[in-house]
Amino acid sequence: MARGVATRLSRVEPVAVRAVGALALASLAATVVLGLWFTPEDQVMGNLVRLLYVHPPVAWVAYLAFGVTAACSIAYLWPRTRSPFWDRLGAASAEIGVVFCALTLATGSIWGRPTWGVWWTWDARLTTTALLLALFAGYLAIRRVTVDPAARAKRSAVVALVAFADVPIVHMSVLWWRTLHQPPTVFRPGFGDPTLATPMAWTLLLAFCAFTLAYVWLLAHRYRVAVLEARMEGEGLELALAERRAEAGYGEGPGGIEGGAGSGGDGPGQAPVPVGAR
């Protein structure tokens, strides 16, 4: 099934990905214009409210990306759907998720400083997001140090699921930690506020769509790069060996390549011999 999805993806990919990219760019541009010029200032926060069109959508993309990674990890670990497709897609999504998670924390800090007076506060949502970033940074780290593709896929899928299972526990415990002793002093003005002005609500909706489209676009490209990387891992060694042999003079004459391929396995120590022999 996954292979079917992969081939179908590769067939529609160029057109569809370009369309999604164009849509993402257009909607992001529209969000910038609407967010900066056409929406009103907030009565309390003034111009700061314009971060509303960046921060929540970025956070949404981070959570979405980690959710996709977890789903892909389950699909990979499930024997009947196991395919490199899920591994690559999950990894691609996790990379985007880590970037957007870091952006969430950065934009949140920028928003928090003028509104709350601090760059950081030990609010449940903030703490959970920070730990989420650390958890998936670990996921990327384990992908980086594991060489064998099958082992990497399996281990990183388990790490992703273990990390994902931790999120509700972290969130509940931190929530209880911060609300047990002090009343919630932190809330987001404008959020869940039924009197959110209509242009603001529409711009926010547009921003969510725009960032989601950008995520899909990045994901498609990151997946494509992952496929190319895998191909390079497979073919790159062959190519490098062939080039090295050609350099050493194996490539010349009939049967030269076969001879090179036969002795190539003996290691690099073989290479200078024909040069000296000639």
């Binding site: 730990l131 650390a134 670990g138 384990i142 140090v145 790490v159 990390a163």
Partner: peptide
């Protein structure tokens, strides 16, 4: 180097 990075955030709760 990897184990502390992986383990510490998970056992934070």
């Amino acid at each position: 180097t990897l184990l502390p990075l992986l383990l510490m955030p998970v056992v934070a709760p």
